[in-house]
Design a binder for these strands. Structure first.
Lengths: 205, 205
DNA sequence: GGGGTATTAGAATAGGAATTCTAGAAAACT
DNA sequence: AGTTTTCTAGAATTCCTATTCTAATACCCC
């Protein structure tokens, strides 16, 4: 019942996402979203309580989707080094396939999405996400290194998250698709680090 | 002649720098700088034409100082792999010694300092800086790889700049001093990548 | 001891953008 | 046909902060 919606929430979010990728989430104005979506600002506020909520939704949807696929290969039963490389490969492919999303995730940070002002429910969603990510990495650390303490978690995060980020960010920021040779260097480097760390790990049973 | 200054420019800049590190340059307000410096806003505008100019000065001073020291070891005549590792080590030490500055350089980006709105002179200073950095890296690429094309520059930048950034950023952001073991992992990884790349380079004479 | 000048002070102004508000419109239900 | 409910519209409001402005100060030099 009631008047049917003329502007879908999905459309609005999509516009907000694209615009954020183009001009940076810091610079996103409700007016610009409205213009791009062809909707009046009132209609946007009818669906979302605030700009912060829109930004939170864009970010959380994005990271949730990415993280789930990223973590999947890590929990298999194969050789942990192969699994780690699969995750890194996935990141490379994902970046290629989703340039807009890659920009948001690699060149911007959560705080650019006003995360300090998120409502409790968004904060919780973010915490859950962080916890899931940490859990996935910890499980992987246990498989690769035999232990999953703070130091192991940090090593694994460096190799599987920070290293790919470092390799890809610059090109993404410049709007360029990362070259195959850079990806090769990245994978090779990750492979080395993974093997070296495994070798140095205290031999688990 | 004239009334002597009660508030030094250096003090104002220092306050702006500290505050930026604490709350992020995006959130820096002139009022907050004035408060911290114990000066009225008018006195700040008497010295700096705008907020953008203050931010530009903070960023450029910082990056200039860092970059000069960072590039120094790269242009020596020693083994290029050692030279590269020296530069990375320098970054680690610098981060340890300058936590406030490290925050600004590693967790924030130039655009957070309003670089799109910088005046021509600040832009030029930034360009010069970028050019110097690129030149330094290109020279190093020539020594390590025998060539200094776009691909070589990118590899070198990944190994000497992006990789350390990625390794250290997370801790810096959390306000933690990066652990020795992480630094060791970083150096080891860089060392591997440098050697591998050198080995694969077309044998220069 | 008066003029000239750089600085201090902080109140007033201005502009940009988020958010609110009031009317009106378009279905669905009865 | 009237009522209810949900949405559209966009103008008006509010907030926040950069920037401007005017007056007052303090020191140097003559």
């Amino acid at each position: 019942m009631g008047r049917p919606a003329q502007h879908a929430e999905a459309t609005i979010l999509e516009c907000a996402k694209q615009l954020s990728a183009e001009i940076g989430p810091q610079n996103l104005t409700i007016a610009s979203v409205a213009e791009r979506a062809g909707a009046p600002v009132g209609s946007i506020y009818h669906r979302y309580a605030s700009r912060d909520e829109i930004l939170a939704t864009v970010w959380l949807d994005l990271v949730e989707a990415f993280q789930e696929s990223f973590l999947a290969p890590l929990s298999g039963d194969d050789d942990p080094v192969e699994a780690g490389l699969a995750a890194v490969s996935f990141t490379c492919r994902w970046v290629r396939r989703h340039p807009c999303e890659a920009r948001l995730m690699l060149v911007h940070r959560r705080e650019d999405f006003a995360s300090e002002r998120w409502s409790k429910s968004h904060r919780q969603r973010a915490e859950r996400l962080t916890a899931q990510g940490a859990a996935g990495l910890r499980g992987y650390a246990a498989r690769l290194l035999g232990r999953a303490g703070a130091a192991e978690l940090r090593s694994v995060r460096f190799m599987l998250v920070d290293l790919p980020t470092a390799a890809l960010r610059r090109d993404i920021e410049a709007g360029v698709v990362p070259s195959k040779s850079l990806e090769a260097l990245l994978l090779d480097t990750c492979g080395y680090a993974l093997r070296r760390n495994r070798a140095q790990a205290p031999r688990a049973k």
